[in-house]
Amino acid sequence: MSVQAEVSASWRAYRHLIGASVRAQMQFRTSLFMQMVASCALTATNFIEVLVIFDHLPMLGNWSAVEVAFLYGASGIGFGLCDMAIGSIERTGELVRTGKFDSIMLRPVGTLVSIAGSDMALRRVGGIAQAALVFVVASARVGIEFNVRNVVLIVVMIFGGTAIFAAVFLATAAIQFWMVGANEIGNALTYGGNYLTSFPLPVFSGWLRRLLAYVVPLAFCAYLPALAILNKPDELGIPAFLRYASPAVAAIVFLAAYGFWRLGVRHYRSTGS
């Protein structure tokens, strides 16, 4: 099969799996609705927290509240989309521990597609809606022009963020083939990562900045592309071209994480029964 045919087959399989998972969740409509509300409320508290912290951090003089809201909104949408699309790979550890990953491996569909499509978290719609609301309001107030350049950069920022978060999700899920209990570390990296990306990079201490810019490149999810959109100077001396590098960075880290995932699948040893 050509790469293109393979991708389109995977995409179709993913769509069918998602459809099934949505239908399954629709059986419990009320509970789904409650979860959406809860997800919305949870991200809203995060936002308030960011604002409160912001209020108390004088070193953020360079950033206005509405700019921080812009950053928060962009990273929240990117993260929410990613979480909804492939968040169910968090289940990897449990599937490995119980041996249910066997069934995933018996299908004529890639393991990643199979797991990612297995349990789409519809409840995340709540969180995404909240982040989108913040983002729309902040964009309107932050004083940017909605020309082609900025719209393209915004789209690139959000989907680049989605892909980078996806790489983090994937890598942390892959670890669980070796360390079944690593779920908590995974959560710390994914949800914690989202929390970090809500802040402008300069608030962090030196080593964490470098980690986020060059190692686990979460700075590319929102901060760096936002500098380009908001036309802000960077006080950290990060090379200017990196503001536009998030698609490339996203592609690299995603492929690396996928390679790591494949290695994990090969390492899978099922369970005795």
């Binding site: 179709r12 399989a13 069918h16 799996l17 099934a20 239908r23 399954a24 299908r107 004529p108 569909v109």
Partner: peptide, 17 residues
Amino acid sequence: WWDLPLIESFDLLRHLY
């Protein structure tokens, strides 16, 4: 698929295969 009617599992398999 645990939460789906049997026939829907079959239908889904048709698409996956």
